[in-house]
């Protein structure tokens, strides 16, 4: 039997780029541990040597000719940017 799950919720939240309140952290930790225990159903079956399925209808090596084709205009691509400056997306300064 697998051990009871003890997820480090703060570490996971950091990886996921989320900040959690203490209340959220407690709640998610307990809910996720419960869900992970249920997911342990998968360990009850021997899966050695089984080929993983990534897509039910596999399509391999989809290539197209490397030719110019119409795409978004600059205006379309920028149309939803929260902050724009000089036809570019503006973000907080990252280089001192």
């Amino acid at each position: 039997m697998p051990e009871a799950h003890q997820i480090d919720i703060h570490h996971v939240a950091k990886l996921a780029r989320l900040t959690l309140t203490d209340e959220e952290a407690t709640r998610y930790e307990s809910q996720l541990n419960g869900i992970l225990t249920y997911i342990d159903t998968l360990t009850r079956y021997n899966l050695d040597g089984v080929e993983p399925t990534a897509h039910a209808m596999p399509v391999y090596d989809v290539l197209r000719a490397d030719e110019p084709r119409p795409g978004f205009t600059q205006e379309q691509a920028l149309s939803n940017a929260p902050k724009r400056f000089a036809d570019q997306i503006q973000i907080p300064k990252v280089i001192e």
Binding site: L42, Y45, L47, E51, P52, T53, A54
Partner: peptide, 9 residues
């Protein structure tokens, strides 16, 4: 990976 294998089954 384990889930992808289960998906095959």
């Amino acid at each position: 990976i384990r889930a992808q294998k289960a998906r095959t089954l």
